[in-house]
Computed example of a mutant assay.
Amino acid sequence: MIYYFTWSEFDKSVEYIANECKFLKFSGIYGVPRGGLCLAVALSHKLKIKLITEPIKNSLIVDDIYETGITLNTFKDIEGAMFFVIFSKIKPIWWNTVNISKKNEWIVFPWENIVNYQSDRNEYIKKRGKV
């Protein structure tokens, strides 16, 4: 199952996250490469907080998707950090999400190359050891 996420939906997600964070103070915003970078830049402008190159205490850490947790779990213990993803494949526990998606749904983000999504998906599956 493939879902094509649009720029319009991305803009709405940025608005949602910005509204959830507008009264909070952050030391900066960190976007997990690659998927979180577009989101981090958009939120940096919207919330007027600096973009940082590594997550630090009291930072907002964002990514495009929470699937296995492998990526975000590496930042979980950063003191005072808040976490947001656009999509989560499971109900959030210590992170926040805009959307919950099905586990078998492959999301193609607007900044990705639509022609190459299948090879990206296959590489992801191979890397994670999924069948």
Rank of each mutant, 00 (worst) to 15 (best):
M82V: 15
N73M: 13
F23M: 11
F26T: 07
E9N: 01
Y4Q: 07
K22S: 09
S13C: 11
K89D: 00
K12Y: 07
L72T: 03
K25C: 13
M1S: 10
S13L: 06
K103E: 10
S101M: 01
Q118D: 14
A42G: 10
Y124I: 13
N104L: 03
H45G: 12
L43S: 05
N113T: 07
R128E: 07
V85D: 01
E54L: 14
R34M: 05
V62D: 04
N99D: 08
I49N: 02
S8H: 04
V115Q: 11
K46L: 07
G129C: 10
G129S: 03
F23Q: 08
N96S: 11
Y16G: 05
L60S: 09
E9P: 03
E9G: 02
G129R: 06
I114W: 13
D64R: 08
I114R: 15
I78V: 14
T68Q: 09
T6C: 00
N19D: 12
K130L: 15
P110M: 03
P33R: 08
I2Y: 08
H45M: 10
N19E: 10
N122C: 06
Y117R: 06
E79A: 07
F87W: 00
I61R: 03
N73R: 10
I70N: 12
D64Q: 04
A81N: 05
N113C: 11
D11Y: 05
S8A: 11
S27C: 11
N113F: 10
W95S: 01
K127F: 14
K50D: 15
T74Y: 10
P55Q: 10
I90R: 15
W94V: 08
R128I: 11
H45S: 15
I90L: 03
R121Q: 15
N96Y: 05
V115Y: 06
E9I: 00
Y124V: 11
I107M: 04
W106T: 03
S8M: 02
I114Y: 10
N19F: 12
E15I: 12
S119A: 14
N73D: 15
I114F: 13
L72V: 00
P110F: 03
A81D: 05
D11K: 12
W7D: 08
L43Y: 01
L47M: 13
W111T: 02
Q118N: 13
L72P: 05
